[in-house]
Design a protein around this nucleic acid. Sequence first.
DNA 1: AGGTCAACCTGAGCGC
DNA 2: TGCGCTCAGGTTGACC
Length: 289
Amino acid sequence: MPELPEVETVRRGLVPALRHHRIKSVTLRRGDLRWPFPRDFARRLTGQRVERLERRAKYILAYLDGGEVLLVHLGMTGRFLIVDGKARRKPGSFHHAAAEPGTGKHDHVVIETDAGTKIVFSDHRRFGAMDLIPEQSLSAHKLLKGLGPEPLDPAFTGAALAARLDGKRTSIKAALMDQRVVAGLGNIYVCEALYRAKISPARLAGACTGPRAAALVAAVKKVLKEAIDSGGSTLRDYAQADGELGYFQHNFAVYGREGDPCRAKGCHARIRRIVQGGRATFFCPACQR
DNA sequence: AGGTCAACCTGAGCGC
DNA sequence: TGCGCTCAGGTTGACC
């Protein structure tokens, strides 16, 4: 689920369940997600207290009091469900009791805290990942070390982006999808940002300089902030950790709107879908140049 | 070195 | 109802 706004929404949803709580038990219901879990993963997590939850790119980072950091990537379909242990179904209800949480086919990890809360990680495609990393070597970790700047960081300016795009012969769409250029964007928000900046997704990345790069950076920041404020986008099975649905998907201008009219004032073009680097790109051929 | 593309995995949706 | 095909918010590693 998961581009930056969805990952940030999930992080925020995990804070009340995890921050300042101690991990009482960890159950792995299979030995791997995208990769095998690290050695003694469950045992090393058990007993540790979560000090804070951060996000870097599309990774959630839980800092533990033992000096290690739990890293989680949601892949395409990873999600967390939080089950408050104190909540009790009313007896005598005609409704079926919900299946025991954490026992579904794709419920791969169940973490229980000292508050009795169960945090269930499900990921039916298993493109997600978890690792446990000593805090002092975090920035050197294979998955983190090559990442580009955080798009919402004030240091991410038009000039900063232009410098990273300099000389790139690929399309601006592909470049923005590259986590080494800027971290956290994915297919939806790249399409939406390019539309807002009125830049063709096929434009040469290295040609995005000056005012064009500045407009693009402004559009990226704006669309990400709006999406975070909306609780992310809910497509298919994504929901926030509390089960609430994000609703930014209603604000998509181009993503998933092939053949529908462009919403720009006075524009009568229809949204087009092309494929770049094996991924669908949606754009307005009239507005974006 | 930089860029492109198939592969990883499962399920949903669609046409027949 | 069922089969086969395409597509899906991501990333990696092999290849040119």
